[in-house]
């Protein structure tokens, strides 16, 4: 048993350090909150109040107005609500899928050793590429995908067995994954556009979800790999001795221990998909447009419409903040300690 009193005294800060900590924390809080406060007050100003020099406090140095909020919610109505729904659906589903796929991949990379052969990888990449080119040239994509997979499986089963390549390791797979994020979006957006156009998925949720899952997976894999590697392997081994299946071990031992990491990663990929601009701009138009595009659209021929933009940004961050508040408690010591204690 631990002794709560002794522990408390050892970990607690001295009064002086406490004051200093508070000063620092409050200082950064101000740095973080002031720009957001400025957004909030700007959303209550008329253009004339924004343009004629700074005013800071509603009712004190300017008369606030709800005109901008009215414009966004009443005049624009559907042009605000539809992107909002799109953003929620695309953000949440892509984050969940990326987390599910990515964390299992990360766990596999930590616990198992893969030695894929270059030849087979090249073969698979080649098949994917051929399929993509064929689709790009206008072949019906369903047939192309099925036949490409068929070709790959046949080749892998026959010639594939004879490949004698230098073996790669887990680290190469991981590095290859993260390297997929190195090409800036401007370079991939037109090819992706053509790809989704040929598959007929442009301007649908699916195009955005698939893209965000693919772009976010490397981050999930990398972050979760580090969290999983801190899980003591003994726990799993003893469970394995008790006859638990790998899947069960993963679900009921590894996952609970890695909850803080999962939550942090989830928040990150959610935010990323929530806020992504360039890919969303091209893969969507009327139906699947997301909110960042609405925000950017407030800068048109008349220059940035700060007041409308502020409203949009405010309503955009509210759900994510609520989610952060709800999830914050999972990033806390108690759960983790409890889990490790089993």
């Amino acid at each position: 048993m631990r002794n709560p009193f002794r522990r408390r005294s050892a970990l607690d800060l001295s009064p002086g350090a406490k004051v200093l900590s508070y000063v620092l924390l409050l200082g950064w809080t101000f740095v973080v909150l002031f720009p957001i406060y400025w957004l909030a007050v700007t959303s209550l100003k008329l253009p004339i109040q924004v343009n004629s020099g700074p005013v800071f406090f509603p009712f004190i140095d300017f008369q606030p107005t709800l005109e901008n909020w009215r414009y966004i919610f009443v005049d624009l109505r559907n042009d605000t609500v539809r992107p909002y729904i799109n953003t929620v659906v695309v953000g949440l589903s892509s984050a969940i899928i990326a987390l599910a796929l990515g964390s299992s991949a990360a766990y596999a990379l930590v616990r198992f050793h893969y030695r894929p052969r270059i030849g087979l990888i090249g073969l698979f990449a080649g098949c994917v590429l051929l399929a993509a080119v064929a689709i790009g040239l206008g072949a019906p994509w369903q047939i192309v995908v099925v036949s490409a997979l068929g070709v790959f499986l046949i080749l892998a089963q026959t010639i594939g067995r004879r490949f004698r390549g230098r073996g790669l390791g887990n680290s190469d797979i991981a590095f290859w994954l993260i390297s997929q994020r190195m090409l800036p979006p401007v370079a991939v957006v037109i090819p992706l556009y053509v790809l989704f156009q040929r598959v007929g998925l442009l301007d649908t949720w699916w195009a955005l979800i698939i893209t965000y899952v693919a772009t976010n997976l490397p981050i999930v894999v990398w972050l979760m790999r580090d969290y999983f590697s801190t899980v003591p392997v003994e726990l799993e081994e003893s469970a394995a001795v008790d006859g638990a299946s790998p899947y069960r071990i993963f679900r009921s031992i590894v996952i609970p221990v890695a909850v803080p990491g999962l939550v942090a990663t989830f928040l990150f990929v959610l935010v990323f998909a929530w806020n992504e601009y360039l890919l969303a701009l091209f893969l969507s138009s009327a139906n699947a447009q997301t909110l960042p595009i609405t925000v950017a659209a407030q800068n048109a021929t008349r220059g940035p419409q700060w007041w409308y933009m502020s409203v949009l940004i405010m309503i955009m961050i509210v759900p994510v903040i609520l989610m952060a508040i709800a999830l914050e408690r999972y990033i806390s010591r108690g759960i983790l300690v409890g889990a490790v204690k089993g």
């Binding site: 796929l101 893969y114 994917v128 994954l177 991939v188 992706l192 790809l195 899952v213 693919a214």
Partner: peptide, 16 residues
């Protein structure tokens, strides 16, 4: 592991 790789591969090789 493999689903993740397949998704990334599928959407990255072609643009690359």
């Amino acid at each position: 592991m493999w689903p993740a790789l397949a998704v990334v591969l599928f959407l990255s090789i072609f643009p690359l």
